[in-house]
Design a protein around this nucleic acid. Structure first.
Lengths: 384, 384
DNA sequence: AGCCGTTCCGGAAACGTTTACGGTCGCAAT
DNA sequence: ATTGCGACCGTAAACGTTTCCGGAACGGCT
């Protein structure tokens, strides 16, 4: 491996000058800079991250924490995967790489699993983004207490040096209800997420706000708390349909619960969307593939990731940057389950473009089907 | 941050001794070792990864390469996500962390995007695992040429220091066909993956081998090449069903193509599984949720990741370890689409346990539904 | 008493950078 | 002719480890 000394020797200058040239310092003449740069290129010189980090105390790496052990299946949710991609792009654009904490035992000789804080310090990362934790977790408390810059995705941890990034859950829910109202519904129920979670609470708030603003009835029985999983959506929908005055539409705070709702409706002989309109939240891959294709509120997960990376790096590079809270807009994706007369033209167009962008030269792909994530809305062909 | 010198000063020994104590060298008395260790614990000492890497030239980090730019949607496939989890566990168990390459421009002053090899060297990672590339990609050629240890997942790159990990595609396909034969089918067709890809070719080979061994007919028209995506499965199935002597069962080399097959069958009025039995490959989340629930060959993606991590770290730590090729077994998951009389008892049991393990205390989860990945095979309730 | 082998430890070099400090020019202003 | 200044560059210290080399102390053997 060629190092900075070699460059110095071969160009006849000191290592200090080489370092300056490499880092674009103005204190070096154009002539020598060019000489050095071209030699570096020629020798395929790559600076040692370790040495650089050691002295400058900044590693150009951001940590990523996501719990994947038993009892933490979150990581397997497509949601986090796409956020990760956003992180990668966001961090990459700023010259940072991502470090996924995995090891429990970096060095040796010490006992027990190390705290994330300690691991972060060990690697000299300037900050971390955390996903799949809630703020009550002891590790999270330690983290925010440590003063290390961090950003939580879709969670409610917060602190002086700890910001957060979420979808605009409230607005997304609002859109969903407004849409149902637009296509003619008056009696709109909701299957909420766990109210203890931030997205659960916010989506319910958006639902309530929409009902109020639209002057729609909002009986207590129309809001049932679920747990984001399909089964709870199933049960809630059964309850709803057996009410004396059942709703004609339901907004589920997650696609999985919406899927459960679909099944319940099917079993009770209620046709979707004719007898019961359904809107979900998330736009997971499944949404476009089930019957009928699900109208849902799409979270822009890539944007979430990008925003998290941006915010974090800002905090890292400016020690007294505020730890903000950013909301990424969510947008309604109209498919069949909500009973809209017809998807507006531009919507279809947009989807097509999106699919293309994500598909790319997928044909040359390595294996398996990537389709689950990019589906050409096959369900829509039903309309033809 | 407390460093090794501080420990040395406070325990009244030299830094060399402290270092030895920390690393478990036998050349230090038990008395002093204990003194040092307990002080280290007390001061919450964390060694600097940078310094350690700088001198020892091993970073205890493995690189992970997966292309996520436009034209590379692979990363969004659940497949890679689960592999990533496996990697995390595998690497973590050996004391390694994962570095996700993201940045295009680590330092500055140089032009253009850096090659992966260079980035890997920059960070001092001992090796990398690559996913979502095929061996023909110029970056991959550079990588294997560089002699850096690497492992490719589900791909066909190979070289002196470059191993690979794949599912046992051949055997998985064999199982699928054998299963179809067991439930009574004789005329079994396949929708293959792209024959240019390794999984595509291997699964076809397994299909052929099974037919031969079982003494089943294997007319040319029964094998159609698809591209792993749903649309190709749809078209292939239409072709198959319009043959003079159509097959009664079809093995699709991916779940997405199987989904396409289901749709085609539906359109042509063929009932699944009665008129046409279908088996897929992958066991993506979707598989359990579509109607009818799909019998498929499950890839153990977590195991793939673990195997990749294991193999890579072996290569890193033993400079002349062979770059092996490992196959992870795939296993058939019987649901409804294949028309098996009944899922064997233990299978159901196994699924239940699996679901539980992955679910864990999911209730306390942060948001969204994790359900897509862990579905309780709701479709099976149809049988009741 | 001399010698040798162990056991434990310290000194110091090395790893590849960045950066504070100082130095040498040449040149314009006094 | 001195001074001052800006542009450019070199020296060397630092960052926190690991590890080679050697040395002291000690006990057992001839």
């Amino acid at each position: 491996m060629t190092n900075i000394q070699e460059l110095a020797a071969k160009t006849g200058v000191s290592v200090a000058t080489v370092s300056r040239a490499l880092n674009g310092s103005p204190e070096v003449s154009n002539a020598t800079r060019d000489r050095i740069l071209s030699l570096a290129e020629e020798l395929d010189y790559t600076p040692s991250a370790a040495a650089r980090t050691l002295v400058s105390r900044r590693s150009h790496v951001v940590g990523v924490i996501l719990e994947t052990g038993p009892g933490h299946p979150h990581l397997l949710h497509p949601f986090f995967q796409e956020v990760l991609v956003g992180l990668q792009h966001g961090a990459g654009a700023r010259g940072y790489d991502l470090l996924l904490f995995a090891s429990d035992e970096p060095g040796s000789g010490f006992g027990g699993a190390h705290s994330y804080v300690r691991r972060a310090e060990h690697h000299g990362v300037g900050g971390v983004v955390v996903m799949g934790f809630d703020g009550r977790h002891p590790e999270m408390r330690k983290l925010v207490a440590s003063g290390m810059p961090c950003i939580a995705v879709d969670s409610d941890v917060a602190g002086k040096r700890c910001g957060s990034v979420t979808s605009d859950n409230r607005d997304g829910a609002f859109q969903a209800v407004a849409h149902l109202h637009e296509v003619g519904h008056e009696r709109i129920a909701t299957i909420a997420g766990p109210l203890g979670t931030r997205p659960g609470a916010e989506r319910l708030a958006g639902y309530r706000a929409a009902l109020e603003q639209l002057g729609l009835p909002s009986p207590d029985e129309y809001a049932i708390e679920g747990d984001f999983y399909a089964e709870s959506g199933y049960r809630a929908t059964r309850e709803l349909l057996e009410l004396a005055e059942p709703p004609t539409a339901v907004f589920a705070a997650s696609d999985m619960m919406a899927a459960g709702a679909l099944r319940a409706a099917h079993e009770l002989g209620a046709r979707v969307p004719d007898d019961l309109a359904v809107v979900g939240f998330d736009d997971i891959a499944l949404a476009a593939l089930i019957q009928p294709p699900l109208t849902t509120v799409r979270q822009n997960m890539e944007a979430l990731g990008r925003a998290a990376a941006d915010g974090l790096i800002r905090m890292i590079e400016d020690p007294d940057a505020p730890a903000g809270e950013v909301h990424v807009p969510a947008r309604l994706v109209v498919r069949v389950s909500s009973g809209a007369k017809q998807a507006p033209r531009e919507e279809a167009h947009e989807i097509a473009k999106e699919v293309e962008a994500r598909l790319g030269d997928g044909r040359s792909g390595p294996s398996s089907d990537d389709g689950a994530a990019l589906v050409k809305d096959e369900g829509n062909t039903e309309e033809a």
